[in-house]
């Protein structure tokens, strides 16, 4: 039996909003450690990895590890039926062919129950090496979202370059070009507004803005986003997931293969 209860059900709604347009079908791996998911987009250009730790749930029971394959747009449709303040409970019996979602409104006597069909998916897992990166940047997530949205008006790709204590996002296209330069901020009063840059070596690399704009759909999950870059490897865009108390619940990490000059 698998059962996971989340008082702040909105977190799960936000997680689905952040992945459903990138990945159509995926499997949640549920173990005593928590729930995780890894999937590539259909073009195999990007990969998303989600982790929700067991102790972040308000109740978590997983007697034996289960894989819950599902259509994420179906799950997202069902989660839209839950209110932002609802408690969400996921339940799956061992060897069942569906997952049950129970939504409970706060201070009300209303409960709703939905079922989503499970699917057998051929999951391919990619091993992601845990390596140090040349550049790590932490910045406000809304700023990253804004930059990606603005630059997509100019071109399809953004060139990210980092030198000394600044990071530069540049795009060019038929209409002209655009550049956004961000400098490291002094220790800010509000940590969520700060920009911090740690650089081992300068870097310059290009990425498709279409994917970055998909990743930015995770913005409501976290006030800060972390970008990690090294020469000739995928960019990592990470949003940590915290609950209202600020406790660490897990993360969404997106990996994006670079574009190279032919």
């Amino acid at each position: 039996m698998f059962e996971a209860k989340l008082i702040q059900g909105a977190i799960l709604k936000k997680i689905l909003d952040a992945i459903k347009d990138l990945v159509n079908e995926a499997s949640w791996d549920c173990s005593s450690q928590g729930m995780s998911l890894q999937a590539m987009d259909t073009s195999h250009v990007s990969l998303v990895a989600v982790q929700m730790k067991a102790d972040g749930f308000d109740k978590y029971r997983c007697d034996r590890s289960v894989t819950l394959g599902m259509n994420l747009s179906s799950l997202s449709k069902i989660l839209k039926c839950a209110g932002n303040d609802d408690t969400i409970t996921l339940k799956a019996p061992d060897d069942g062919d569906k997952i049950t979602l129970v939504f409970e409104a706060k201070n009300e006597s209303e409960t709703s129950e939905y079922e989503v069909k499970l699917m057998n998916l051929d999951s391919e897992y990619l091993g992601i090496p845990d390596t140090p990166y040349s550049v790590n940047v932490k910045m406000p997530s809304h700023k990253f979202q804004r930059i990606c949205r603005d630059l997509q008006q100019i071109g399809d790709a953004v060139t990210i370059s980092c030198a000394k204590d600044s990071i530069r996002f540049a795009a060019k296209g038929d209409l002209g070009s655009g550049t956004v330069n961000l400098c490291q901020t002094a220790s800010a009063d509000k940590p969520e507004d700060s920009v911090s840059i740690s650089m081992q070596e300068p870097i310059i690399q290009s990425f498709a803005l279409k994917y970055l704009n998909h990743f930015a759909k995770a913005t409501p999950l976290s006030p800060q986003v972390s970008l990690s870059l090294s020469p000739d490897v995928p960019l990592v865009v990470e949003y940590s997931i915290t609950d209202d108390d600020g406790s660490d619940f897990g993360y969404i990490r997106y990996y994006l293969a670079p574009k190279i000059d032919e």
Binding site: S43, Y125, G127, I128, S206, A257, D261, E262
Partner: peptide, 14 residues
């Protein structure tokens, strides 16, 4: 032009 690389060129099947 720019060539888009695939993610599975970087990360091998586990």
């Amino acid at each position: 032009g720019n060539k888009q690389l695939k993610i599975d060129c970087f990360f091998k099947r586990a």
